[in-house]
Amino acid sequence: MNEHPLRKQIEEIVQLTDDEFEFVLEHFQKKTFKKHQIVLHEGDYAPFDFFVLKGLMRVTKLDDDGKEHILQFGMENWWITDSEAFHHKTKATLVVDCLEDTETLALTLDNKEKLIRELPKMQTFFLKKTTNGYIALQKRILCFLSSNANDRYHNLITLYPGLIQRVPKSMIASYLGVTRETLSRLTKIEL
């Protein structure tokens, strides 16, 4: 039997019995979305943190000039939301949408807190995932500050294997903070 992707991810950090995993799973809602569907609008409350089972999502921010900036992609086995809005129960400043038909497991903050209270090893899991996410964000910021476009491109390939085959080049360029022309030069170097 194939192991459930969420269980596999949790057990990279803490071990669960079958009963414990069933208890964990009871706290999630399965949610499916269509390609191009906006899951979270700027200004709305963020009721869920999504674990992506299948598909591709992204987090974006529109600047004052109307330019879209991609902060994060969420592919299979990734977590995605507007973290500040989710954890502080405030209105979202970011947009979460689907780039492909997507299947998720959605977790509310109340259910996350209940899991942590009733199954303390889940606190270790969430703390480790949050810490790893913070470290990844820190590395991304440092990469933007000190790396050239070529290094950022290679970091993207490492972080999101297969992504460049799944999204338009304009989105890759937005994530990297480069023009589409610069991205074209970078991908030609790869060939």
Results as ranks from 00 to 15, higher is better:
175 Y>Q: 10
109 L>P: 02
145 L>Q: 15
48 F>Y: 15
177 G>F: 10
78 W>P: 07
74 G>A: 11
81 T>H: 04
23 F>M: 09
187 T>D: 14
152 R>T: 13
56 L>Q: 03
104 T>G: 06
80 I>L: 15
120 P>W: 00
152 R>A: 13
105 L>T: 09
152 R>F: 10
145 L>E: 15
179 T>W: 15
8 K>R: 11
28 F>G: 01
145 L>H: 14
114 K>Y: 10
82 D>R: 00
9 Q>K: 15
143 C>Y: 00
66 G>P: 07
76 E>Q: 12
32 T>K: 12
107 L>V: 06
164 I>S: 01
80 I>H: 14
149 A>K: 12
120 P>Q: 01
105 L>R: 07
18 D>I: 01
24 V>A: 05
169 K>V: 09
160 Y>F: 11
91 K>V: 02
99 L>M: 13
161 P>W: 05
110 D>L: 06
31 K>E: 12
93 T>W: 00
120 P>F: 01
15 Q>M: 12
10 I>S: 06
35 K>E: 08
17 T>W: 03
68 E>F: 01
83 S>M: 08
18 D>H: 04
161 P>R: 05
7 R>K: 15
2 N>E: 13
190 E>M: 03
97 D>F: 03
62 L>G: 01
128 K>N: 12
38 I>H: 07
116 I>Y: 10
27 H>Y: 13
184 S>G: 13
155 N>T: 02
98 C>D: 10
174 S>W: 07
56 L>K: 05
3 E>Q: 11
45 Y>C: 04
74 G>L: 03
53 L>S: 10
106 A>T: 10
161 P>F: 08
96 V>S: 04
34 K>L: 15
164 I>L: 15
158 T>K: 15
83 S>C: 03
138 Q>L: 14
173 A>K: 05
143 C>P: 00
32 T>F: 05
186 L>H: 12
64 D>N: 08
190 E>S: 14
87 H>D: 02
58 R>Q: 11
74 G>M: 09
114 K>C: 01
37 Q>I: 01
95 V>P: 00
71 L>I: 09
59 V>N: 10
133 G>D: 14
68 E>T: 04
77 N>S: 11
66 G>L: 03
97 D>K: 09
118 E>N: 12
168 P>H: 09
14 V>P: 07
150 N>E: 14
25 L>C: 10
47 P>E: 13
180 R>N: 11
78 W>N: 09
45 Y>P: 02
167 V>R: 03
96 V>G: 06
114 K>D: 08
44 D>E: 04
70 I>N: 11
75 M>W: 05
185 R>G: 03
122 M>E: 00
26 E>D: 15
28 F>Q: 12
56 L>C: 13
21 F>M: 02
124 T>P: 00
1 M>F: 10
27 H>T: 10
66 G>M: 03
82 D>S: 01
141 I>V: 15
11 E>T: 12
8 K>D: 02
108 T>W: 10
41 H>P: 00
19 D>M: 02
23 F>H: 10
44 D>I: 01
162 G>R: 13
56 L>V: 13
156 L>A: 03
81 T>E: 01
6 L>K: 06
119 L>G: 04
147 S>H: 12
12 E>T: 06
121 K>P: 02
60 T>G: 04
28 F>W: 08
99 L>K: 04
163 L>C: 06
151 D>P: 00
87 H>E: 05
96 V>C: 10
9 Q>W: 02
45 Y>E: 11
161 P>Q: 08
85 A>K: 00
172 I>A: 04
